[in-house]
């Protein structure tokens, strides 16, 4: 990315108008397939257009996704309008569809995940970017990548048979003993529920937040670190005073990226959150997310309105994650453009 600016290799070589043959009125930029003597090379023309077409494919796919999903949810959009977002009933038999329990489940499980994952991943990022010796940096960076590479469904399997029993037997009773006066920790410990969903999401978004934050911290110019150290700051003071303020917007971007992943994550959550469309204050109670209800009911949805309602959930998910990603990328790019960064972003 950083080299993008100067990388116009071809323009200088054959796109430049030759002083003799070409009239100055035709700027070469518009006709880069002209060879030096002004002949059109058909192969180059075709090749360039073909690659451009494929590149346009991504933009078109994104646009097509928005259009298709809006069309698929048209029935539900028409019937329920904004009431869809605040309705609490999800009753296929009476054809009543309200998304509130799913929106609630998605938001709370994702926020829970952030609450757990943000401090831990910032610790990892600071360690990897600032403190660890080079060989640890490399190997541990790879381990974090592997954490991201484990398929969602495998985390789900592990969640059902390892995490949930552990939460039920150890963590939830302990939380209840210590903090049972809060409504958050009331009810029967079941293992499977909102807490399990939040924990598994935290594990899954940790690599994203950690690796992006590490990269933005590496992009902070070394001169700032050297300045702080030269003033007698300890390593931690250097991080706090020199690195974190510079990297702040990028770290916020990383957290938003993580949030985007958490909101859209499907399989692992579906397997441990309990799948019940209820709004409960207790973290031990089962819940349901938008992605989960789509995964569970989309193939079985009978009736056009039912399918449209599920599609609308998908559309909301798509819109929200799109917006979050847009914001996050802009924030991360801003840090990437700092002059003299220590590492490439």
């Amino acid at each position: 990315m950083a080299r993008g600016a100067e990388h116009r290799a071809w323009d200088g070589l054959d796109g430049r108008p030759s002083r003799r043959g070409e009239s100055a009125a035709t700027p070469a930029r518009r006709r880069p397939w002209l060879s030096r003597d002004g002949e059109v090379n058909l192969g180059d023309l075709v090749f360039r257009q073909v690659t451009a077409l494929f590149a346009a494919g991504t933009v078109l796919t994104l646009a097509a996704m928005a259009i298709q999903m809006t069309r698929a949810s048209a029935l539900s959009l028409e019937r329920f309008g904004l009431r869809f977002l605040v309705g609490r009933d999800w009753d296929p038999v009476r054809e009543l569809f309200g998304a509130l329990p799913f929106i609630y489940g998605t938001l709370v499980s994702s926020l829970l995940a952030l609450l757990i994952a943000v401090p831990v991943s910032l610790g990892v990022a600071i360690y990897l970017a600032e403190l660890a010796p080079l060989w640890i940096r490399r190997s541990l960076g790879f381990v974090i990548e592997l954490l991201a590479a484990i398929p969602s469904v495998v985390y789900g399997l592990w969640g059902i048979f390892v995490l949930a029993p552990w939460l039920r037997g150890t963590v939830e009773p302990a939380l209840q003993r210590a903090l049972g006066f809060l409504p958050l920790f009331r009810g029967t410990p079941r293992g499977v529920g909102m807490l399990a969903g939040g924990v598994i999401l935290a594990i899954m978004i940790l690599p994203t937040i950690a690796s992006v934050s590490r990269d933005v911290m590496r992009a902070v110019p070394n001169s700032l670190r050297e300045g702080a150290l030269a003033l007698g700051a300890t390593r931690w003071e250097t991080v706090r005073a020199a690195v974190l303020p510079q990297a702040r917007s990028g770290i916020v971007g990383a957290i938003i990226l993580g949030l985007g992943r958490a909101l859209g994550e499907t399989m692992a959550v579906t397997m441990v959150i309990g799948n019940r469309a209820e709004i409960s204050a207790s973290l031990f109670a089962p819940s349901y997310t938008m992605a989960s209800v789509i995964a569970n009911e989309y193939t079985e949805a009978s009736g056009d309105l039912y399918l449209a309602a599920l599609s609308e959930l998908g559309l909301i998910l798509f819109g929200v994650t799109l917006a979050l990603n847009l914001i996050a990328r802009l924030l991360v790019w801003r840090v990437g453009r700092l002059p003299g960064g220590a590492g490439r972003l």
Binding site: M69, A72, R261, G314, F318, T321
Partner: peptide, 11 residues
Amino acid sequence: SGVPSIAVGIF
């Protein structure tokens, strides 16, 4: 790359 894979499924 940040769009949920389930949304791609619906698409």
